[in-house]
């Protein structure tokens, strides 16, 4: 019972603190913008811890965050190995190959309005499909190691980046294009100096969508066969052998990796498209 009361008090105090911070005159500072969500996240973690203790939930069902942290600290070596296998080898390589391929294809088909018109609706449709489903096929084509994981990621990342890039290349302001015409600028000059920079906000939209998909692809592909390492492998065997705290530790790694990856892409977006109204805020 005491756990619940502590959690409740913490919740109320945290909420009051957040309200106070948001109402204060510092509410727009970076510090407050950072601290407020962190406090909110902490309340959730503490509520979880409290609920597990208060209701005596078995660790085989839902371990408390403290146990997960403990397991995390004890198995950093294994977690790192899994991280390397799934994130660095599978997800990242696939992501770069897929994004680069999509960009190149977008530039190539952009020269033909006919192709662009035909590919855009198809690409949009495919981008909305559950492409993860191709994982077993690609695993059977490329084997159990990271190559097949990267292949799944390539396919998943390709379409969002492709349609966004094609869309972005089309969306340049008519006046800016006319300006290029008055300079008698060549196709490549116009592409390089006007259309690619103008398309950057779109391209980054695709890259951000791809970033959230990349880890999903790499992990799902491991459910269909992998060497005896990797986050997806560990999760599926962990669930089977009821070492749930290890599974949660892997989930924490996945969450950190996913957030970090997304954060890096968003950071680059800010650097590259600083001029766009959405970034000037």
């Amino acid at each position: 019972m005491s756990w619940l009361i502590v959690a409740l008090i913490f919740w109320l105090a945290a909420w009051a603190a957040n309200v106070a911070m948001v109402r204060s005159k510092w509410s727009e500072t970076t510090l407050v913008r950072f601290v407020v969500p962190v406090i909110f996240g902490l309340t959730l973690v503490i509520a979880w811890e409290a609920l597990v203790h208060a209701f005596n939930v078995s660790a085989a069902i839902l371990p408390p965050p403290s146990a997960v942290a403990d397991t995390f600290a004890r198995s950093t070596g294994m977690l790192w190995e899994d991280f390397t296998q799934t994130v660095l080898k599978g997800a990242l390589r696939g992501y770069f190959i897929g994004a680069a391929a999509a960009f190149v294809v977008a530039i190539l088909i952009d020269r033909s309005p006919f192709l662009t018109r035909g590919l855009l609706p198809i690409g949009n449709f495919v981008a909305a499909l559950p492409i993860v489903g191709v994982a077993p096929i690609l695993v059977s084509w490329f084997g159990f190691d990271w190559q097949s994981k990267a292949a799944v990621v390539v396919v998943m990342v390709f379409f969002p980046v492709l349609v966004n890039t094609v869309q972005g290349l089309r969306e340049t302001d008519a006046m800016m294009r006319d300006l290029m015409r008055t300079y008698a600028a060549s196709y490549f000059k116009t592409l390089w100096k006007l259309r690619i920079p103008a398309a950057m906000p779109f391209i980054f939209n695709g890259l951000k969508v791809g970033a959230t998909l990349a880890l999903i692809g790499a992990i799902v592909a491991e459910y269909f066969g992998s060497p005896t390492r990797g986050m997806g492998f560990r999760i599926s065997t962990g669930v089977g052998s009821l070492s749930i705290d290890l599974v949660w530790a892997e989930i924490v790694v996945a969450a950190l990796a996913g957030t970090l990856f997304y954060g890096v892409v968003a950071w680059f977006e800010k650097k590259v498209t600083f001029w766009h109204p959405s970034q000037r805020g």
Partner: peptide, 29 residues
Amino acid sequence: SRAYGYVFQHAGLYPWRTIGRNVRLPLEI
């Protein structure tokens, strides 16, 4: 042969280029 300069009704500067680099644009091209 780049015989004229054209000034549009709206400035139409490229937002990702500084003023200096906007003016540099035709010179680069």
